[in-house]
Amino acid sequence: MANTDYQLIILGGGPAGLTAGLYAARDQLNVLLVEKGVVGGQVLVTDWIDNYPGFPDGLSGSDLVEKMAAQVARFGLKTRNGNVVKVELSEATKKLTLESGEELTSQALIICTGARPNKLGIPGEEKLTGKGVSYCATCDGPFFRDQEILVVGGGDTAVQEADFLTKFASKVTIIHRRDTLRATKVLQEKAFANERIAFIWNSNVIAVEGEKEVERVRLRNNNDKEKEIAVSGIFILIGTIPNNEILPLDQLGTDKHGFIKTDQEMRTKIPGVMAAGDIRSKTVRQVINGAGEGAVAAIAAEHYLSELD
């Protein structure tokens, strides 16, 4: 048996990582979960979850995380806060290097690093982030009570959060680069029925402007006509990008967007390395399948480890 610190390391503590940790700790593997922030991942910022079974009245994202964390704690999962800066993978040893220089090794690794909100990459966006530019409606929505704001995007997140934001804002305008929404029908219908939501179609935001805070945005429509509108907030909800910067992507194999490809047992091309949750190449990114993939990955890791013995 290889001489490693752990049998299994789980990298990332969102729903996929926590569920993998639950399975692995419950089966008494020598396992460590490494998380760079706080456990929970993107679910933490989800206002309300109505489609996670077992909670008939729904619950907030942070409450779901709290319950998941309590459940893994019950089985004694070791977790460690640390920022991994390097991942080196060989068949025998999986090695993580922390920012502090410390190294952690394991025989098997489950990658659950997740995804993060995509940015527009336009002038003013970076400078005014946290000062009116936001990627999280539930975190920042209440700062815009009785104000006019913009939501960029046309998918589930954008449409659902626009509806949520009307709890606070006097008017929410959804700006979308096409003339139809991509969001599921039930969300679309809710948004169309909401009197406080307006739409601007076939247009892009090209700049965010303001001295200390967001004051206005510049738009350009598909006919190249520009206009300026006054808003105090802009919520950019245009999908996610993979948290893959520290990973050896060529070795792992990814799709063209940088999400990791796996087989249906969550195994990557490298023996003993699994991936689960939003970092995986897939079409559906929900809490429930993230958690499910975590379970599958943990079982795959157990099979891998048992064959090493």
Binding site: G37, G130, K131
Partner: peptide
């Protein structure tokens, strides 16, 4: 501040550092 959590470190009445989000 229009996003939380925001954590600001003060010394001698001045901002030394600040960070927004659920950092570790």
């Amino acid at each position: 501040i229009r996003a939380i959590p925001t954590l600001i470190l003060f010394k001698g009445g001045e901002i030394v550092d600040q960070v927004t989000g659920a950092v570790g």
